[in-house]
Design a protein around this nucleic acid. Structure first.
Lengths: 187, 187
DNA sequence: CTTTTCATGTAACAAGTTACATGATTAA
DNA sequence: TTAATCATGTAACTTGTTACATGAAAAG
């Protein structure tokens, strides 16, 4: 006897996105990146298996200028499954960052211009992320009506909003760290 | 014709740790966690293959109260290989966090006490990490002699120090974020 | 007495990446 | 004309996790 098929985190992530609106596999692949990096080769088969399990369903949308696409929606059964998962404790986040290893070895090459370059590149990355998130924030605020004001916890955009806020806080901290390290490194 | 064996990030990570001192596979598994989560079942075979490639070597240390262990050291060849890698640009960090998905779905269960619990647990996790890092910081400062003063970029502990500093900044930001979210959520 | 720590390994499985495969439209 | 975007999929491979396997010492 085997119970209900158990889903992995990526699968729950797809269901999470689909609580907002319908998406194609292509769109899901793009939108899930900031939360959970994954390639289309992982998403497409997973969507197929979620559909087989009855947690999502799709409608084919015929397009003329672009290839046809499959628009996926979460089902009642998928919503229930997601609801159970939402109530459970979240696992510890896992971050894997090459730069941490390279930073740890700074005593081996701190005088090299390569060392400075690593932190300049990371600072640039943080600045780009911050710029992206600031644009997103404005977008969500506009969509929520009262511009300048923050969405409240009952707003449908509250989830999106707090995640943008988290990104802003964390990337700001990372940028400041990079700039501090650069100030400590010899020119 | 096949060139030099190419290493993955975890392998370079092990070499990075070994630039400080010798470690057993067991110790490497523990110390690498904050940088790059990995299980011993991944570390042990990787160490064996690094040794076969000549990048590390080990000496068996016989113990009486505990099981014998293999103490690994980086070789000259391993140092060269690591040096090449250090000079290369670091890939974008990858973070995978379940809580992001659950936060994104807050409109589905913001009123539930489960929602509050998720952020309370994450806040607690951040507090624990901060406490750990503060202890580490004091430890490194003590080891570096001038207590209260920060190690300079030529200190052998500079790498360890800046990583602790990064953790402090980022987990501080995450903790503040959790507390802010909790202030927005209904009791 | 039961669990944790120390210590090393392998086998089976799940998750994630890269490469292969196709093909029209549009922008540079 | 070359590259990028849109759109879906599979095959082969690498990476990472869980489970199996052993066993002594120490702490609760």
């Amino acid at each position: 006897m085997k119970g209900v098929p158990s889903l992995n985190t990526l699968a729950y992530g797809l269901l999470s996105l689909l609580t907002y609106k319908t998406y194609s596999g292509y769109e899901l692949t793009q939108h899930i990146q900031p939360f959970w990096p994954a390639k289309h080769s992982q998403i497409y088969p997973l969507l197929a298996s979620l559909e087989q399990a009855g947690y999502v369903s799709h409608k084919l949308v015929v397009q003329h200028d672009k290839p046809d696409k499959k628009m996926y929606a979460i089902t009642e059964s998928g919503s229930l499954k997601l609801g159970e998962w939402l109530a459970m404790s979240a696992a510890e986040p896992a971050t894997r960052d090459e730069l941490a290893f390279k930073a740890y070895c700074l005593h081996k090459f701190a005088k090299s211009p390569d060392a400075r370059r690593l932190f300049e590149q990371r600072a640039e990355l943080s600045r780009n992320k911050l710029q992206f998130l600031k644009a997103k924030k404005a977008e969500v605020q506009a969509r929520d009506g009262r511009s300048g004001d923050l969405p409240t916890s009952d707003s449908p955009h509250f989830g999106a909003y707090i995640l943008i806020d988290k990104g802003l806080r964390v990337f700001e901290a990372e940028l400041e760290w990079c700039e501090w390290v650069l100030s400590q490194l010899p020119e």
